[in-house]
């Protein structure tokens, strides 16, 4: 038996390299939002010493820089996907990683979505949902054309299955 030595391999396909930029911009937006309370604090306490503000600012800069450089690279190495005739398989995350596998016969909807940042980089994401609220498989950072192709493929395969998928 190979059951003892077998390991789950990562899914076959990487996402588009443009996803690196997508994740970087998304992180940048988050860090800019975090800058707002700091600025407000600076104005609210303008007569105080500037040292605490400088310390917080430097910490912010360091964390933002590390996050924006490391996270997209790491994610790009992790994020993968694969769709076979019988199953959809995704791998996502960076520090915390998650592999999700759902049989095609249990798939209920296949959605494709393009947010504003994704449109900037000609990307799209595909979400495959099952009857469980805990089980959507989301593939981020696909090239738009690949996403359309995947949706078409999956829709055809799902259409061949029967039953109410619960």
């Amino acid at each position: 038996m190979t059951a003892d030595t077998a390991r789950l391999r990562p899914p076959a396909h990487r996402v588009s390299p443009r996803a690196l930029w997508y994740w970087t911009v998304k992180a940048a937006v988050l860090w800019i939002v975090l800058l707002v309370p700091q600025v407000i604090w600076w104005f609210a306490d303008s007569d105080g010493a500037s040292l605490p503000h400088v310390i917080v600012g430097v910490v912010w800069l360091l964390l933002a820089a590390v996050h924006m450089v490391v996270m997209p690279q790491w994610r790009y190495r992790v994020h993968r996907w694969e769709a076979t005739d019988t199953a959809v398989y995704t791998q996502t995350g960076w520090l915390n990683q998650e592999r999700r596998i759902a049989p095609i016969s249990r798939v209920q909807t296949v959605d494709s979505e393009r947010g504003p940042i994704e449109q900037l980089f000609k990307l799209a994401n595909v979400t495959v949902t099952t009857a469980s609220a805990a089980g959507p498989l989301k593939i981020d950072g696909l090239a738009a054309a690949d996403a359309d192709q995947l949706v078409t493929d999956l829709t055809t395969r799902v259409g061949r299955t029967t039953g109410d998928a619960t």
Partner: peptide
């Protein structure tokens, strides 16, 4: 037969 998918999650520490 009620299982309609698997999620395998690992944190840094778990890996």
């Amino acid at each position: 037969d009620a299982v309609i998918g698997w999620n395998l999650t690992t944190s840094v520490f778990q890996r």
